[in-house]
């Protein structure tokens, strides 16, 4: 399990530095056809996968990603613990 967690974290770090910044399929289509502006920009705790406290873009994205990995993991492991108790 540890190795799998490390794999996820490794992917996140690689993504933070090497992922393509181009729009994804849907965004590209929306831009191309001209309805991108109908989308409502929202902000959240870690908008655009970045932690605003960290000024370096790559590190900020990596950190946000690692937090996200642990949120996903925690969601299910927390549910598991709850189910175990009852």
């Amino acid at each position: 399990m540890k190795k799998l967690l490390l794999l996820s974290i490794l992917i996140v770090i690689l993504a933070a530095f090497f992922a393509s910044a181009h729009p994804d399929g849907l965004e590209k289509v929306a831009e191309h056809l001209g309805f991108m502006d109908k989308g409502i920009e929202r902000s959240s705790l870690m908008t655009d996968y970045s932690v605003s406290l960290v000024p370096y873009e790559g590190i900020s994205t990596a950190l946000a990603g690692i937090i996200g990995v642990f949120i996903c993991l925690g969601l299910f492991w927390g549910a598991g613990l709850l189910l175990k108790k009852t």
Partner: peptide
């Protein structure tokens, strides 16, 4: 879930 989240970040 963790792996899917991570992989989805890699455009």
């Amino acid at each position: 879930a963790a792996l899917v989240f991570a992989a989805q970040m890699f455009n």
